[in-house]
Nucleic acid binder design. Structure first.
Lengths: 259, 259
DNA sequence: CGGTGTCTTGACATTTCTCAAGTTGGGTGG
DNA sequence: CCACCCAACTTGAGAAATGTCAAGACACCG
C-alpha cells in the first residue's frame, strides 16, 4: 500500500523535478541520490481548481506544498475585505516551508489557475533537516529568495507610482518565466485578471486598466487573451526601474537571460 | 591576541545575550553550552554613529551583524532618490543572516541611532550550520519571523490608507518593545524622525505629520520628545486592524503582553 | 443564445503630494 | 550664558494621482 502510493507518486514527480529541482539547482548541484530523495518525499500530487484554498491563514498544515503546474498565490485579507496579494507562486515554488518552524500560517495560499500541487509531509522535511544538511540549505535558500522578492515588492508598492508598479511586476514575471523556460520572444501566458494584478500592486482595478492601456499605447507591452508580450524590454525595465539583482540569479541564469 | 579579543568580547556580550539570546529563546531553550558558543562567536562589537552604513546593497559582508543597542534599519533607494525603509532592527535583531547563503546584499542596513553592533564571522555561522543543528534552526527561525513581519508591512502599505498604516506600525513597535522589556505603561522611546517614519509607510513627511496630529487629537497616542505613549491601545489596534498573529509570539510572550 | 465575469469608459470625489513659508527646539561657538 | 543655526516639525493652499460609482461593451461558457 505504501509501496503503491510511492509508485504513483513516482510517475508524477517527473514534473515536480522539472520545476522544483531545477530551481534548487540554481543554488546547488544535487546528486542523483538527493533528487531521488526529493522525489520520494512527495506523497501526493493534488489537482486543485482555480480559486481553491491550499493553505489557510492561522492553520497549521501537515504538509509542505510545491507548485507543479499552474499558478498559486499568497494573500491576506484586510478587514473591509480588501485582499493583498503577497506573492505569486509559479511551478517549482514552495508555498509554506515556514511551517516546519513556525506554528501557524500567517497568510493564505490559493490556486490562481487550475493547478497541480505536490505534498511533502512535514516530518519528511524535518528528517531532511537532520540528515541532509545540503538539502536543508537549499530549502533555507529558497525561502530567502522569496523574502528578497517580497522585499522588492514592498519597495515597489511603497515608493513607486501605479504605472511603474505594474511595469515592475511585469518585468519580474518575465524574468521568472524565462528562468522556467516558459517564454517565447519575451512573451508568456499571464493568467491574471486585472483585479488580481491590482491586489498585488495595491491599486484599483479601474486604475490598473488605465495603466495597462497606457503601457500598451506606448508600445511597451501588448496583452491580449492572457498573453503578455513585452515589446520593448529595455524601455520597460528602465521605466520600471527594474534591476534583477534581487532575484539572486546565478551566473548561469544571467547568461541564459541575455540570449 | 586572539585570546585577548575573546576576553574583550566576553565583557560586551552580556548585552548581546540579553537581547539576541533572549529573542532566540522565544523559539528554543538554549543550553549553557550553546549560549557560550554564541558568545564566543562574536569577534567584535562596533560602535556606530547615527546614519552610518552597516551593510551596503550589492556588497558581500564578511560578518553577520546583530544589533546590541540602538536602532538600525533596512532600506533601499529607488532611482529618484526615494528611500524605502524595509524594516527596523531593534536590539537582538540580526541584520544579514541571508548572506550565509546568498552572494550579495539586496538591500542596505544602516544605523538609525548611535548603536552597538556585534559581528560574527560568516565562517562561524557556517560551522554552526554544520555542527549545531538546533542553533541553525534558530537562525532560520529568526529569518522567517522577519519575513513574516515584512509580509505584514507589505499588506500594510498595499491595502491600508495612510492613517491606518502609521497606526499599525506604532502598534507593532509597541509590541516589539514590550517583548524587549523596553516599555513603561504602553510608552517607549521612538527615535524616529517623521521622515524616517514616512519612508517606512510610503507617505510624505508632510502627510505623516498630519496623520500623527490626528492620532494625537483623537487621543489614541501622545508623542513628545521622541517618547511615544499609546493612550488607548484597544482603540488604536482596532483602528489599525492590528493583530499580532504575524509576530508568531510564543504562549509565554502572549501572557507577558496581557499584563 | 443567454448569462456572468471581465474589461472599458466617463464623470466626479477623495486622498495624498507638492511647494513654500513659518515655527520650534536643541546644540554649538563665541 | 547668549545668539545663532540647522534640522525637524507645522501650516496652508493648490495640484496631481488615485479611488468611486455607474453604465455599457465584450467575450467566453454552458
Amino acid at each position: 500500500m505504501l509501496r503503491a502510493s510511492r509508485a504513483m507518486a513516482t510517475t508524477k514527480e517527473a514534473k515536480l523535478i522539472d520545476a522544483f529541482i531545477n530551481t534548487i539547482e540554481n543554488f546547488i548541484q544535487l546528486s542523483d541520490a538527493e533528487k531521488q530523495l526529493l522525489q520520494s518525499a512527495v506523497t501526493r500530487v493534488d489537482e486543485v481548481k482555480k480559486g481553491q484554498v491550499i493553505n489557510c491563514e492561522e492553520e497549521r498544515p501537515s504538509h509542505v506544498h510545491v507548485v507543479v503546474e499552474g499558478w498559486a498565490y499568497r494573500y491576506k485579507y484586510a478587514e473591509q475585505g480588501d485582499r493583498a496579494i503577497v506573492g505569486y507562486l509559479l511551478p517549482g515554488d514552495m508555498s509554506d516551508i515556514h511551517i516546519t518552524l513556525l506554528d501557524h500560517m500567517d497568510h493564505s495560499v490559493g490556486a490562481l489557475t487550475p493547478a497541480k500541487i505536490a505534498l511533502i509531509p512535514l516530518e519528511t522535511i524535518r528528517e531532511i533537516y537532520e540528515n541532509h544538511i545540503p538539502l536543508s540549505y537549499a530549502f533555507f535558500w529558497s525561502s530567502l529568495i522569496s523574502e528578497s522578492i517580497l522585499r522588492e515588492w514592498f519597495v515597489n508598492n511603497t515608493v513607486r507610482p501605479a504605472d511603474k508598479r505594474v511595469a515592475h511586476l511585469l518585468c519580474e514575471m518575465l524574468v521568472r518565466h524565462q528562468l522556467a523556460g516558459l517564454t517565447h520572444d519575451n512573451s508568456f501566458h499571464l493568467p491574471l485578471t486585472q483585479a488580481e494584478l491590482s491586489d498585488a500592486v495595491g491599486i484599483t482595478p479601474v486604475h490598473t486598466n488605465r495603466v495597462l492601456q497606457r503601457l500598451r499605447s506606448e508600445e511597451m507591452i501588448s496583452l491580449d487573451k492572457k498573453r503578455l508580450a513585452i515589446l520593448d524590454l529595455e524601455r520597460l525595465m528602465q521605466f520600471a526601474e527594474f534591476s534583477p539583482s534581487y532575484l539572486h540569479l546565478s551566473e548561469a541564469y544571467l547568461r541564459r537571460l541575455s540570449n
